[in-house]
């Protein structure tokens, strides 16, 4: 038997499958990560204990500082496996504290590894307040001239309040596996019915919220492979040339105007396929099958 063996793609560890701690350790320079409020200091949720649920020692988020290509950065990584990466009071306080510390310490950037379905419903208003505080802190950090980059490629994507937080960041990097939206697929189906959106149709979910769609729409600056090393190299390249534009009211109004027009342009469309056709993609049904590099080339050819 002399069957030709397809050569496996030479990829490093999957970002999607890694835990928050594995992502942090592999993304930053080796041995450079110093964690703030590590698990042995046990900052777990007081609310979960009241509900008779076991908490996590880090409340589902890892924060700290380190170096990336020798440059100082600070980092936040949500653990999607713990309660869907949902934001509770302690979880949110750790993120806000890190962002406030970044304003003081002035790292080159804050890397925000988002992996969350949004607010932690167990904690109700405390979780919602935490999310609003994170939004404010992201804007404050950017106003201080420190870019905040959202890295989305985990199993929970970035939904609900964390979808908003991601879009408030300086820029978003996504893998194809990543998803970004406001209401999650199951929420839409619950509220508006399966005719509106079938959350069990995984291909549809990715065509509407996935990394490829977000990249074609210009919602993320880079589409990276599902590989921690590719996230690392992309963020190093991006940082080397980054000029942070602190959020200004006139720029935000212009962005709001652009999004309103976009909403009208694609109004009534029900699938990424229709949107891609409207963008001028010649064979929209081919998009889900394309490799990353081919998709990047295709997007460069579109007059967006």
């Amino acid at each position: 038997m002399n069957l030709p063996q397809p050569s496996p793609p030479s990829r490093g560890p999957s970002f999607y499958e890694a835990t928050a701690r594995q992502r942090v350790n592999r993304l930053l320079d080796a041995q450079s990560f110093a964690e703030f409020l590590p698990p042995q200091s046990a900052h777990s949720s007081p609310h979960l204990a009241l509900l008779d649920l076991p908490g996590a020692l880090d409340d589902g988020v890892v924060i700290g500082s380190g170096t990336l290509g020798g440059k100082p950065v600070q980092i936040i990584a949500q653990e999607g496996q713990f309660l869907g990466g949902a934001v509770g009071e302690m979880h949110g306080a750790k993120i806000v504290g890190l962002l406030q510390r970044a304003i003081r310490d002035k790292p080159l950037a804050v890397l925000f590894l988002v992996d969350s379905g949004g607010v932690r419903l167990h904690e109700a208003n405390a979780g919602l307040i935490a999310l609003s505080e994170i939004m404010r802190a992201v804007l404050d950090t950017r106003a201080a001239g420190i870019p905040v980059f959202a890295l989305i490629g985990g199993m929970c994507g970035a939904f609900g309040g964390m979808g908003i937080v991601s879009r408030l960041c300086s820029a978003i990097l996504m893998s194809e596996q990543g998803r970004l939206a406001l209401s999650g697929p199951e929420v839409i189906e619950t509220v508006a019915g399966v005719e509106e959106f079938d959350s069990r149709d995984r291909a549809l979910v990715w065509r509407v919220t996935g990394g490829k769609h977000r990249y074609l729409m210009g919602d993320c600056v880079a589409l990276v492979e599902d590989d921690v090393e590719d996230f690392r190299q992309t963020i190093i390249t991006l940082l080397a040339q980054w000029q942070e534009n602190p959020p200004e009211p006139h720029a935000l109004r212009a962005e709001q105007e652009r999004l309103t027009q976009r909403c009208q342009q694609f109004s009534g469309m029900r699938d990424g396929l229709e949107v891609w056709a409207a963008l001028g993609v010649p064979n929209p049904q081919q998009i889900p099958l394309l490799e990353r590099d081919a998709l990047v080339t295709l997007r460069q050819g579109l007059s967006l």
């Binding site: 835990t19 701690r21 698990p39 042995q40 076991p54 996590a56 020692l57 653990e79 496996q81 713990f82």
Partner: peptide
Amino acid sequence: ASLCGVVS
């Protein structure tokens, strides 16, 4: 200290 696993 060492930590392994995730609460899920």
